[in-house]
Design a protein around this nucleic acid. Sequence first.
DNA 1: TATGAATGAGATTTCATTCAT
DNA 2: AATGAATGAAATCTCATTCAT
Lengths: 197, 197, 197, 197
Amino acid sequence: MPNTHSTTKKKALLQAAKELFGECGYAETTFKKISERAGVALGLLTHHYGNKEKLFLACGLDVLTSFQARLIEATAQAQSGFDAVMSFCEAYLAFSIDPGTNWLVLVRCSPYSDMKTSDDRAVMNEKFEEIHRILIDCLNQGIADGTIAKTEPRTTAMVIISLMVGANRTRVLTPYESSKLYEETLIFVARAIAPTA
Amino acid sequence: MPNTHSTTKKKALLQAAKELFGECGYAETTFKKISERAGVALGLLTHHYGNKEKLFLACGLDVLTSFQARLIEATAQAQSGFDAVMSFCEAYLAFSIDPGTNWLVLVRCSPYSDMKTSDDRAVMNEKFEEIHRILIDCLNQGIADGTIAKTEPRTTAMVIISLMVGANRTRVLTPYESSKLYEETLIFVARAIAPTA
Amino acid sequence: MPNTHSTTKKKALLQAAKELFGECGYAETTFKKISERAGVALGLLTHHYGNKEKLFLACGLDVLTSFQARLIEATAQAQSGFDAVMSFCEAYLAFSIDPGTNWLVLVRCSPYSDMKTSDDRAVMNEKFEEIHRILIDCLNQGIADGTIAKTEPRTTAMVIISLMVGANRTRVLTPYESSKLYEETLIFVARAIAPTA
Amino acid sequence: MPNTHSTTKKKALLQAAKELFGECGYAETTFKKISERAGVALGLLTHHYGNKEKLFLACGLDVLTSFQARLIEATAQAQSGFDAVMSFCEAYLAFSIDPGTNWLVLVRCSPYSDMKTSDDRAVMNEKFEEIHRILIDCLNQGIADGTIAKTEPRTTAMVIISLMVGANRTRVLTPYESSKLYEETLIFVARAIAPTA
DNA sequence: TATGAATGAGATTTCATTCAT
DNA sequence: AATGAATGAAATCTCATTCAT
């Protein structure tokens, strides 16, 4: 089975790339570093992934796919719209600090990152909109069942995700002491979306 | 007046760099682009600013200084703690979309950016903490005058700034339609910090 | 035979570098000059040798290795300690003016050169001590068989090699007329080490 | 007296240059380093010394002049030719390790150095020949008074100076333990030039 | 599929020298 | 004499990508 071998190498490359793009960022990550960490030949990179940008995107999408699955799973069993939104947020933040998810590469590759927009990024942008969609569904559920204050769900989802993005960056990128940040962030969301008395 | 001429070139360099780092990001901005836009010789860059990293930092700090002044001004005249916090947030968001502030370079240089942390960044980190301090003062005022719910001000400030960071990135970096985002973000904050009935 | 081709280019690079470092010195020898003379791409230099310093060292060590072999060969068949020392000196001086040995690059790279000491130079320093060792062995032989005056061999070897170094520099670096220098240098050594009557 | 001031600055420049060329070598020494160590403006360097090469030469010649004076002084009072030669060698070696003579700059600038020969170096070459002349005179004296073996003085002087050059380089450039080297070098010379019994 | 030598454009940085003041 | 801003050529080194094997 020659395929087994090649698949392994292709995967090793992707894993090394996910780690390095996360640790070093796009510019500082080189083909040499990736192939060395993966323990495979340099030339396999372009052979399997075309070019650097596409590999970067493949890394981001790989993490985004797991992320999406996790969020769907987390919100599926919620009893109310409010619970669903809170589960969404909890799962978002938990995923972002779960070692082994290679979260950082997504931070650097997502539409919220500093990277210049390129054509290849369209896929990423669209896939990230599906994350928004999950939250919008939760909000709609909450508006319907009265557990959430009445607002425009699309914009509210955008605000909540903005908060997730910001809290996450504070936690994983800045040097500031943020041990209670995630906890407090959830309280903040809960207060903001709670129906007015 | 020998200074008049040199100061002009040094300033032109800084201005061109602020624009380009904001537009293109750190990696895509080259010495050539900067010196050409500034209309000065290539070597003047290292002559005045040492190296690319230091110039980048000088750009960020320059914007951060104006930003800080704007926030202090905005919060100074507030009638209540609640008003102060809301003024802080309004001023933050307004500054971020004010053309002519070169906000983008700060986005890319701030502690919330994707850049690797280097020794030079310590100055930036410390200066950004002063922004936190401004908001913490507002929150303390609000807790004292009863216009804000009782919480730990340091962490709450961190949450609010996380939301500012995230909302701003959504607006200026992502391709998503976000015309009502800022407005809704302010409402979100107001609801979250309002004292419980 | 993939090696055949690559080895050729790597060797061509080393040969061109040996010539140019010898002719022009370290500072005046550029990547451009080397790659042009070798007829290979500029980037191959760092690909194969890491950086300029390491290439320089590789050049020096390459010459030093031949030099060492030549000295061992020359001293092996000596009848007495005195003859061994004289053979050492003769071989030293002869090697230094043998066209095709690329001696000059060693002059510029050896521990007796003007170059700043760097970490990479340790290898060179140690390898050059082996040259001292060869001469020390000859001296010990001569002290044992009575053909050489009794002295501390380590220091005497150092004096003799100092004279080789100086005579060689006079011959290959200075503009002074030195056609009889080597001849006279050997006589000088012979008189100095001869046992006192 | 405006001259006093300028003379001081010119001298400060020369002193700083002598130190730095000695410590760092020609290539690593920059105008910026020199002017900073001297505490004067960058532009004064070319103003006073024309260009880098000329300044280097000025440094070397300045040291060479003191050196020459010292050798003349040392050999003047010798009782015999043999004593004169030995005094020459002693003075040579002593000068080379006397702190405050800035000897190293001469090592790097002399005709025995690794530097490429340029037109400006002719002065240095000629002046260094006068050093040879001093020793030749001593040798002639010794041959005349019978304290030195009969040889061709010009070549013998060249051999002795070669030994001085080599011993000095061993002592001040190499990492090898050379505490007894100078002592033994003098003995070596004495044995080599002594008249045959 | 797999390898890694080979390429060369391009980036940052250095620096002697010039020159206006 | 003195200053240091200004210049731009040149150097080293990086690195994505190509390609022969």
